[in-house]
Write a protein that binds this DNA or RNA. Structure first.
Lengths: 156, 156
DNA sequence: ACATACAGAACTAAATTAGTACTGTATCTC
DNA sequence: GAGATACAGTACTAATTTAGTTCTGTATGT
């Protein structure tokens, strides 16, 4: 299934939960609120903190808070922090990961799709996730595809 | 890493390869052309055939061909055939897969993002992959996000 | 001083992915 | 119609990744 890891999903839930409370929150409370096991929450918060998305405070009354406003933290950053680079295929992210790179006809296009996907997730922020979203009517060839043109006959 | 499985990637390469040759192609030739091991190619072609994207022909001079024109086969279908449903998170695809569904604040939005992602990949076809694509300048809040509006204050 | 809470590292178990092997059946060629 | 070719189907194994745990250490507020 083409989807995020469970842990990354938890991470997004945790980040949203932190964003919704102005005060510092510790791992135990976040675990209770999210229903995710404490050791797992702890591990995720450490990783998010290590990536600079959260600021940690030790000691009693310690906890975590966002390093920036929710509007300035993209979903792409959260994903990047917890499961590494975003891409459509491995070869479009990790150079040299595939033996047939030179001859592969699809690789160049995979890279284009990856960039479109990344761009979309960079424009989606934690601030967006905090409010209910809705899907506008999908026009044919909209979305990712709208940002991709065919070189031959494309609109440029 | 948020990306397709290797096998799905191979599958897309194989489908593109088949699309580029009008005549029937057998598993052995496709394996040679793609550099993917024959047993793996064989398995993938079976799955794609089973999902109705390829038509198979037995016997000597047999092989596989596309069941429809490349313009009528979406990348979403290929992914769906090889790794199941497309989604952003598991809970937005498989109902009841998460214990905290009722209380989760993010789930509804995950579903919206999933639909946007799915819509984008449904509009991207094998025909597109056969030609070199290029990325148009990414405008702020374009792509997936452009199809999502915030209920409060959204453009509707 | 002491309890609290994060930091870091190492480890285990479960699940998924990737790849293989083998038997069966349809079909074309000669 | 005999035989080679090539797909169909199933079951299996190995490798990798993901998920979750445990333990020791260190900073900080009361």
């Amino acid at each position: 299934m083409f989807r995020l890891n469970k842990l990354t999903d938890y991470g997004i839930v945790l980040m949203t939960s932190i964003a919704q409370h102005p005060e510092l929150q510790n791992a135990r409370d976040l675990a209770a609120a999210s229903q995710v096991p404490l050791p797992t929450v702890s591990k995720l918060l450490k990783e998010l903190s290590h990536s600079g998305l959260l600021v940690s405070h030790r000691g009693s009354k310690g906890g975590y808070s966002l390093s920036r406003s929710p509007q300035q933290i993209s979903v792409a950053e959260i994903i990047g922090a917890l499961e590494g680079p975003i891409g459509f295929t491995e070869c479009s992210v990790v150079a040299g990961s595939c033996d047939l790179e030179p001859s592969c006809l699809v690789r160049r296009n995979s890279k284009v799709i990856s960039l479109a996907l990344l761009g979309a997730l960079e424009n989606l922020t934690l601030g967006d996730l905090m409010q209910p979203m809705e899907l506008a009517g999908l026009k044919p060839r909209s979305n990712i595809v709208s940002t991709i043109n065919l070189i031959s006959g494309g609109v440029q």
